[in-house]
Amino acid sequence: MTPAPTPSRWALWLPLGLFAVFASLVLVGLLRPADRAVKSAMIGRPLPQFALAAATSMQPGVARADLADGKPHLLNIFASWCVPCAVEAPQLRALRARGIDVIGVAIRDKPEDLARFFAANGNPFSRVGADNVSAIQFALGSSGVPESFVIDGRGIIRYQHIGDIRADQVVMIAARVAEAGQ
């Protein structure tokens, strides 16, 4: 018969020690909330070269040079067929009202659908480029619509926002744009 092992005194404290390690680890995790924003590999990089034709007859198209004109811009990737984009529209209008230049890139869209979308949701964009093959979308490392990029005056990406901008995020985005302008 094997004797059942008798745990030594210090071994009995081991579970408590392990638990203390666990508790302090999650405490650190809680007190220092992680930056949930996706760390884009593109942040700090210059925009790729591109030139998009106008998506509608109402506004001009977009080229890289339009985003590197010395002023910060908000580049918004959207589509008329995307429901969250419609939800996001009031926030983009609010950003526009704060004097921020919002530039749109419409993904796989048609002029008549865009016209309907703008009629229903308003048009906050100064320029709208048509990206019919998602080329710019991929070049920017963006995975879906809507997505927004803060571009500083030199055409460098400063911030990437995945998903729609919520009402409570308008101030944060405006701050990011202001930061990029300094």
Binding site: P7, L16, F19
Partner: peptide, 13 residues
């Protein structure tokens, strides 16, 4: 759990 494990360490012996 901290309390229970402390009791365990003190009493399990």
């Amino acid at each position: 759990i901290g309390a229970a494990l402390t009791i365990f360490a003190l009493r399990a012996g």
